[in-house]
């Protein structure tokens, strides 16, 4: 699925990276704890989170995540959006809750990531 598909499934708004919506996403991960996210290595993945600080962008950067989706109607500050934009991340915002957002993407064929051993 592409980032554009995710936007549609989650009824999300695009906060930055409109020109990168064509990118393919293979895996997803949903968490508000960044070290949980950092425990899994995935390629071309999307991170769903309700946490809104700059460390979400840094975590995505370290892991080569390509898309951030803020859920539960959370809106990051412009500073966070700018940081993401500099790193070529697409940022989406959806009002769906975590369980529902993950469920929709999973049901549409997106997989979880693999643990690096």
């Amino acid at each position: 699925m592409t980032i554009a598909d995710i936007k549609n499934y989650l009824d999300a708004e695009v906060l930055c990276g409109e020109e990168l919506m064509y990118k393919e996403v293979h895996t997803a991960c949903g968490s508000d704890m960044m070290s949980d996210v950092l425990a899994y290595v995935k390629d071309q993945s999307v991170l769903l989170t309700g946490l809104c600080n700059p460390q979400v962008v840094r975590t995505a950067e370290m892991m080569d995540i390509i898309c951030l989706c803020f859920i539960r109607g959370k809106r990051p500050s412009q500073e966070v959006i700018d940081l993401a934009s500099e790193r070529d991340l697409v940022v989406l915002a959806s009002s769906k809750r975590m369980f529902e957002a993950c469920g929709i993407l999973y049901a549409n064929g997106l997989a979880g990531g693999a643990v690096l051993e």
């Binding site: 508000d32 704890m33 960044m34 070290s35 949980d36 950092l38 425990a39 989170t49 946490l51 600080n53 460390q55 979400v56 975590t59 690096l116």
Partner: peptide, 15 residues
């Protein structure tokens, strides 16, 4: 702030 899961040091060892 999104930290304090107790996963940092295990992650550092793993990576």
């Amino acid at each position: 702030l999104g930290f304090g899961a107790g996963m940092g040091l295990p992650n550092m060892k793993k990576y």
